[in-house]
Amino acid sequence: MVIGGLIAGLFGSLLGLGGGVLIIPLLTLVFGVPMKEAIGTSLICVIATSSGAASLYVRKHFADIRLAMTLELATTIGAIVGGLAAGIIKPEVLTILFSVLLFYIALSMIRKRPEKNQEAGSSAPGDYQITNFPFGMGASFFAGNISGLLGVGGGVIKVPVMYLMMGVPLRIAVATSNFMIGVTATAGAFVYYARGEVDLLVSGATMIGVFLGALVGSRILHLIKMEHLKKAFIIVLLYLSVEMLFKGLHLHFLF
């Protein structure tokens, strides 16, 4: 599990994901952990990656803490509602919903064009006008909901919303989302913790792995050809999506 967490943390930090996307399939498919406990564990790991990565971003002044706090009002409530809802919903349904989420992430990665160079330098928090604020709050609530319900960070929703709808530069959107993810995941994690759905052994082992993986990942980031990594990752996501769907339906695909 430590090794599994290590791999999840490594890829998570390289690709800017919370790692929950990989941890939940790993725990449920490979280690046979029940879905809800996997979600609880994943939320803890999401906090671990986020705290590690965010400390770096905050230091470099990429994260807009004011914007993060404001949107956080919506995401934390969303996460608690999502966490409570997950208590009532059948694990099979959660598994299928998770499969849909994986598919969506894979699709959004395929569609994303390389746009890094456009705004490499200048922008700092405060240099831009935030637009569509009410929409942003609504979307943040939804992102929190997904986070609490399925045990992921919700960055997949927050980053595009901030970047495309609210006029926040991409790099700042990523850093701000990273800062928010930990806080959002905490709100959800407490709900699972109170229900007894955070397995100490599983969470502890995976958390250490993720933490180390994230540390290594952030240091070797510049050594890696992102294009290949991304393509490989999309295939993995699509495969996991099918696998989780079959699991939710109590069928067997490859495992």
Binding site: S51, S55, V58, R59, H61
Partner: peptide, 30 residues
């Protein structure tokens, strides 16, 4: 603002490192 960012950043680092170390102790003991 710079000072604040550094404070926040340090809190994050200390928190996550000590959490990882504590769990590692628990795991090794186990």
């Amino acid at each position: 603002k710079e000072k604040i960012d550094i404070y926040v950043s340090n809190i994050l680092l200390i928190g996550s490192y000590s959490a990882a170390v504590l769990s590692l102790i628990g795991l090794l003991m186990l």
